[in-house]
C-alpha cells in the first residue's frame, strides 16, 4: 500500500467521523472514484454561471427540470428560474429618436416553450433570456435579512435557512431581479440554490444538466482548470442591471441593451 493511499484512507476515515457530508462521499470511494470524494469543502469553490443568449432556443427544459428537481410549486409565480422572450421592434426610420419599446413574455415561466407569436414579416428581433438568482457577491437580499436566515455561503451561493426564516419578505423586496418568492407551503422565502444538493455531490445543476444547447454553463471560478474560464475569456459578457453593483455571478454573453 503506497503512502499516498494510506494517507488518503486515514484522511477519509477522519472525515467520516467528522462530517455528514463525508459519509455521502464514501459512496464515491466504494465506486472506485475516490478522487471525486473527499468531502465537500465550502472554502475551495466559488460557483458561477455563464449563459449564452445566442444559444438559448427557449425550449423551457431548464424551467421544468428546476421545478422537478427542487420540488418548486407548479405555478409560474413561484419560479426559481424562468425564461423570458424579448421582442425588440424595428426602429422607425422616420422617427429615429423613438427608442423601440421591447415586448416581453414568459408564458408559464417558459416551462413548456414559447408558441410563435412573431411570425416572419413582423420585423424586429426576438431572443430568449434565461433568468435565475444571480448569486450576488454583495447581495441586497442578504444585506436586508433581519435575522441571518439568508446568507452567502463561503462557496459563493446565496442560500436560505428555511428553519430560521421569519417570512418578513424584505429580501423579496430587495432583490432587483425578482428571483425570490414565498413558498406557500412553508411560509418562508425560497429561491434558486444553484442546486446546492447536486453541486456539492459533484453533479451539475438540473437546469445545466438538461440544457440541450449548452446555453447554460455552470462552473467553479476557484478551479483554474474549469472550462468556465475559457467561456468568460472567449465572450464579451455582461451581468443584469450592472448599475445595481450587486456583484452578480451569472454572466451573460450576447445580452441586448433592452434586457432588464
Amino acid at each position: 500500500m503506497s503512502v499516498d493511499r494510506r494517507q488518503f484512507l486515514a484522511d477519509t476515515t477522519k472525515l467520516l467521523l467528522l462530517t455528514g457530508a463525508a459519509s455521502r462521499a464514501w459512496a464515491f470511494v466504494e465506486q472506485g472514484r475516490p478522487q471525486d470524494a473527499p468531502g465537500y469543502d465550502v472554502h475551495r469553490h466559488w460557483w458561477a454561471m455563464f449563459i449564452d443568449i445566442e444559444k438559448c432556443i427557449g425550449c423551457g427544459l431548464c424551467v421544468d427540470a428546476c421545478k422537478v428537481e427542487n420540488d418548486v410549486p407548479p405555478e409560474a409565480h413561484y419560479s426559481r428560474t424562468w425564461v423570458e422572450r424579448y421582442h425588440v421592434p424595428d426602429r422607425d426610420p422616420l422617427d429615429p429618436l423613438a427608442e423601440p419599446q421591447p415586448r416581453v413574455d414568459s408564458p408559464d415561466g417558459g416551462r413548456h416553450g414559447f408558441p410563435e407569436i412573431y411570425p416572419p414579416g413582423t420585423g424586429g428581433k426576438s431572443f430568449f433570456v434565461p433568468k435565475l438568482c444571480n448569486h450576488c457577491a454583495h447581495s441586497p437580499c442578504v444585506q436586508v435579512c433581519p435575522v441571518g436566515a439568508t446568507f452567502e455561503s463561503p462557496d459563493g451561493v446565496v442560500l436560505v435557512d428555511k428553519d430560521y426564516c421569519v417570512g418578513c419578505r424584505y429580501c423579496v423586496q430587495a432583490c432587483p431581479y425578482g428571483c425570490r418568492y414565498i413558498d406557500p407551503r412553508t411560509q418562508t422565502v425560497d429561491k434558486c440554490t444553484l442546486c446546492y444538493h447536486r453541486i456539492t455531490r459533484g453533479l451539475t445543476t438540473a437546469c445545466c444538466e438538461v440544457c440541450p444547447t449548452g446555453a447554460r454553463q455552470f462552473g467553479d471560478l476557484k478551479n483554474p482548470r474549469d472550462p468556465i474560464h475559457d467561456l468568460l475569456r472567449a465572450h464579451k459578457v455582461q451581468v443584469l442591471k450592472p448599475q445595481m453593483a450587486t456583484g452578480s455571478k451569472v454572466y451573460y454573453a450576447g445580452l441586448d441593451a433592452a434586457v432588464r
Binding site: Q143, V144, P146, V147, C165, V166, G167, C168, Y170
Partner: peptide, 27 residues
C-alpha cells in the same frame, strides 16, 4: 408586523441574531 410575518413565532430571532446590516433588524 406580527400578523404579516410568515412565522410570527420566530420573530424573537431579531433579538437573538440581529443582522447589523439590516434596517429591519434594528426595529
Amino acid at each position: 408586523l406580527q400578523l404579516h410575518l410568515g412565522h410570527p413565532e420566530r420573530s424573537f430571532e431579531m433579538f437573538l441574531t440581529p443582522h447589523r446590516s439590516s434596517a429591519m433588524a434594528m426595529f
